[in-house]
Computed example of a mutant assay.
Amino acid sequence: MRNNLTTIPILTIILIVFLIFSVSGCVTKGGTGDQAKTITVTDMAGRSVTLKYPVESLVLMDSTCTAEFSSVYGEGFDSKIIGWDNNLRDNSGDIYEKYVEKYPAMAEIPDVGSLDDNTFNVEKVVALNPDVVIMHDWEFMWDGEATKEALARLDQAGIPVVFLDFYMDPLTNSTKSMQLLGKITGKEQRAQEIVDYYDEKVNSIYSRLEKVQGKKPTVYIECAYKGPDTYGISYGDVAWGAIVKKAGGDNIAEPILLNKSKVLSSEYLVNQSPDIIILTGRNWSTPGSLRMGYTSTLDVTKSTMTPFVNRPGWDTINAVENQNVYGIYHGYCTDIFNFVALEAFAKWFYPEEFKDVDPAETLKEYHRKFMPIDYSGTLVYNYY
């Protein structure tokens, strides 16, 4: 009898302990109990990557991706970026100023260097010990060998790398990239809200383009980074060129460049005499470059665009003769705002069919809904 009496409490204790562990040991994203939670994703380069879930610290190897990350993550995003390159500060100083003005601590984020100028410091990244390094597919095209070397060294150090894509196939992969950001940070619902907004805007443009009849306008688009004396790169069926095609334009660069981004000769441009010219501007420090962005006024944008319009031979081009020269913020070539570029291009290509579309208002709305900084400046521009 004594043995039975002592056995009952022991069995009860075992049952209670079992129930406690059953409740607390639920499997979540590849982790159990006290083990570190992980998630495995396929990134935009087609790589299978396993990393900590949710990501709490990251290094941005294109700091202009701050717009996407801050939109997806929301409150507290600034404390999660523990390292980045100098792209935001040097090429988008206007946006950098807006972020730092509101989040002063961002001025102290360590610069880990860049792949495109061989300043990338792997040791510095390893010392920061981020949960993930964010890179972009375009880095394979522009900085292929440096990117492969960086990947090998980061892999050796046990630091995962996730690739996004807002450039190679922008109007297809941008939403996928946003969902990927949401997935690794545990902000999937917020990311989906952005994707839904994006899809609503682009699908509206696509459905209206299907009804447009007649010949497509021929289009030339140039990165106005170097100033009017030196022609900047144009785009085949990639980046800006891909958006031109989706907006119903006939890109004069595509037959020559295919899916590359290179400079076209002035002779070719003048001989082609496109119907539309689009120049991309930014807050570049290069003398003579087209100035656009959050801190650029209409007067500044016009005064810096005029020397381009006055290039030799341009007075004979259809776009200039018919006053169809436009400017757009260059950052929209590599970020989520490419849907605004689609709106602007469709309006410029088919002004009657899209006369009710206002890309600037769309930008303001997106900022109100998703961005931590306010809309300002000149980001979409009609020269005439």
Rank of each mutant, 00 (worst) to 15 (best):
N4F: 15
L5H: 06
P9E: 00
I16L: 13
I20L: 13
C26H: 14
K29F: 13
G31Q: 07
D34T: 11
D43L: 11
D43M: 12
A45L: 11
G46A: 04
K52G: 01
V55Y: 09
V55P: 05
E56D: 14
M61I: 12
T64C: 01
T64R: 15
C65Q: 13
E68R: 10
E75M: 02
G76A: 06
K80Y: 08
D85K: 10
R89I: 09
Y99Q: 05
V100S: 07
V100D: 04
V100C: 05
K102P: 02
A107E: 02
I109Y: 05
L115I: 04
D117T: 14
N121W: 07
D131P: 02
V132P: 05
W138C: 07
F140Y: 15
M141K: 15
A146H: 06
R153C: 01
D155M: 00
V161K: 08
F163N: 12
S174L: 03
S177M: 05
Q179A: 13
Q189Y: 15
V195K: 04
K201G: 02
E210I: 00
K216V: 03
P217Q: 03
T230E: 15
I233N: 11
I233R: 13
Y235R: 04
G241S: 09
V244R: 04
A253T: 03
I256K: 14
K260M: 12
V263S: 10
V263P: 07
N271T: 13
N271D: 15
I276H: 04
L279R: 08
G281L: 00
G281D: 00
P287L: 02
S296G: 00
D299L: 13
W314P: 06
W314S: 06
T316S: 12
I317D: 09
I317L: 07
I317E: 08
A319L: 03
Q323M: 02
Q323N: 11
G327H: 11
C333T: 14
T334L: 01
V340Y: 05
A341F: 05
E343R: 08
F345A: 09
Y350Q: 02
E353T: 10
K364T: 00
K364Q: 09
F370R: 06
S376E: 03
G377I: 04
L379S: 07
Y384S: 09
